[in-house]
Design a protein around this nucleic acid. Sequence first.
RNA 1: GGGCAGUUACCAGAGUGGCCAAAUGGGGCGGACUGUAAAUCCGCUGUCUUCGACUUCGGUGGUUCGAAUCCACCACUGCCCA
Length: 426
Amino acid sequence: MSDFINELKWRGMIQDIMPGTEEQLKKEITTAYVGFDPTADSLHIGSLVPILLLVHLQKAGHKPIALVGGATGMVGDPSGKSEERNLLSEEVLNYNVACVKKQLEQFLNFDPSLPNAAELVNNYDWFKGISFLEFIRDTGKHITVNYMMAKDSVKKRLEGESGMSFTEFTYQLVQGYDFYWLYNNKNCKLQMGGSDQWGNIVTGTELIRRKSGGEAFAFTCPLIKKSDGGKFGKTEKGNIWLDPQKTSPYQFYQFWLNASDEDAAGWIKIFTFIGREEIEQIIQQHQTDPSQRLLQKNLAEAVTVFVHGREEYEKALETTQKLFSNQKAPAESLSVEDLESIEGIVKSSYPLEKIQQGTEVLNFLTETAIFESKGAARKMLQNGGISINRTKLSDIQLVVNSAHLLHDKFILVQVGKKNYYLVVAE
RNA sequence: GGGCAGUUACCAGAGUGGCCAAAUGGGGCGGACUGUAAAUCCGCUGUCUUCGACUUCGGUGGUUCGAAUCCACCACUGCCCA
């Protein structure tokens, strides 16, 4: 259990670390927590790193606590936000909390026979019983406004144009209280999180020191960015979610497979449990022939298996191979079985009758919901971004008819290079 | 409550009576080149069935042949004062 920090260090998963943290972890089985915001009904891959911190922690023999912010979610974390956020309704929040809880459960081991069994808590459970007066007298009294204003998350907003509500200003105290509560009730001595959480975390350790005279520790992991400066985890379709209903395992796999070389080399350390030597070997092999994209393949495999399981990974891989391995081959070479078993790409159905009569492409593309409007479809087509059965379209007047059907049943539509749609005529 | 500044498309930000669906940059999407990469170059980026039409510049009214632009009121935001 001693090499936990070292393990994270070589993986590049430690940004800031409080002095004494390593010693604490070496001394005894330590309980540590990470908080998750219920801002949506699913976690996305941005939350994957904190989850991995907990998994690494448990692997190293320590006890992980995953906290879902039922209470903090009602306040709104100002960290990294340039503007005040809208509050979620309680109803939505409760639903999100339930969803996020469910997702977290699959990554940690909750077996109660383990000395370091994972635990899942909701900070609403202890906040619901605390009155406002109680809170400002017992907790607020220990932290000065001067201290709170010095935090980056607050300072930026004070200097910026949009200001900050009292609600969001209070956030760090509320989160700090979580740590204090867990320290006293669960003997939790360590908090982890993204580096944007550093300020909030430190308020927690400060509160523990001033209120109970105890010592608590913390470290943060760097926020993941793409080497080109873009936002991590976003694609044209939005966030990459962990929920397979929102992001299919195939799309999930594709996201990792599309990582740039530079990103993949860093990400494989952070997002997989592959050992150091093996990773170095993969990187080396990758460099001898980058076009094989060994790095990306290994990365995508490991993460997809971790989140969706091996079976879903196999399907995603199979779909990938069908769609990409023989790109030059005519679409006709795909068998009925191939087409029928393609998983994870967007499928839509279309009346067979209409195809037999012949439909104009633009109608076809909008009526299958591949495009929202004819204008959008037209622009894409004129830009050369649409293929049907792997043949690029150039004619707006084209009529889609029976001749386009593969095996009398399917039409494979591509938007751009990577976005596939399978239209089933029936 | 008083004073000042502001509110423009996904974001930032120009535009201060007609030439404005609105400069520019970023982001996003598509294309070429590649390796389903990066860099580079090119195109698209309010809505709609192309030409063209329609709806936008915080809201509501008004002035005007004509308003993002002028006026009035309201709302919101920021800064300063009480």
